[in-house]
Simulated assay, not measured.
Amino acid sequence: MKLQLALGAAALALMLPGQALADCDITDALLKQAYPGAQQGDNGLLVKGGGYDRAINPDDVVCKAWPYRPELMLAAVPLIEAKPPVEGENKGDVEIIIADVATGNPVARRLEKGMAFSDAIQFGSMSLDTARYDVGDGLRAFGLRTSQSGSSRVNPYDEQALWMYTFDKGRIERVLDGLIVERSNGENNGDCEGESTSVTRTVKLGPKVELGYRDLTVEQAITHGTSKKVGGECRFDKRPGKPAKFELIYDNGHYRPAAGVKPHGEKGDIETDLFSTIEIGAKP
Rank of each mutant, 00 (worst) to 15 (best):
C24E: 15
Y52Q: 06
I26F: 05
G225E: 14
Q220E: 14
V61D: 01
G265P: 00
D237M: 09
K2I: 05
S118G: 00
L205R: 05
R54F: 01
N105A: 12
E71T: 14
D215Q: 06
S184G: 13
P284Q: 09
L176F: 04
Y255K: 03
E87N: 07
D237C: 01
D137P: 00
W66V: 12
Q4N: 08
V107H: 00
G150D: 06
E95N: 05
N185M: 07
P284N: 11
T226K: 12
A102L: 12
M115Y: 07
G150Q: 03
T223M: 11
K229D: 08
V203M: 05
W163D: 07
D251T: 13
P85L: 06
V107C: 00
R201K: 06
V94Q: 01
G253M: 04
S127Q: 09
G88E: 01
L176M: 05
G190F: 08
Q4G: 01
V94S: 03
N155R: 13
E195K: 14
V101P: 00
I270M: 04
P240K: 13
L111M: 11
P85H: 05
D60C: 02
D28W: 12
K283M: 12
E159K: 10
K169T: 08
G143I: 02
R201Q: 06
Q148D: 05
L5N: 14
K229L: 08
K229V: 15
P58E: 01
I56Q: 05
C192E: 00
I249G: 11
G50E: 08
K32N: 12
H264E: 14
M164I: 00
V77G: 08
D177S: 15
Q220S: 15
P263T: 04
L274V: 05
E195L: 08
I180T: 15
Q19V: 15
D42Q: 13
L162W: 07
Q19M: 14
G138N: 14
G37K: 15
L12T: 13
M73E: 03
E266A: 15
K169W: 01
G260N: 07
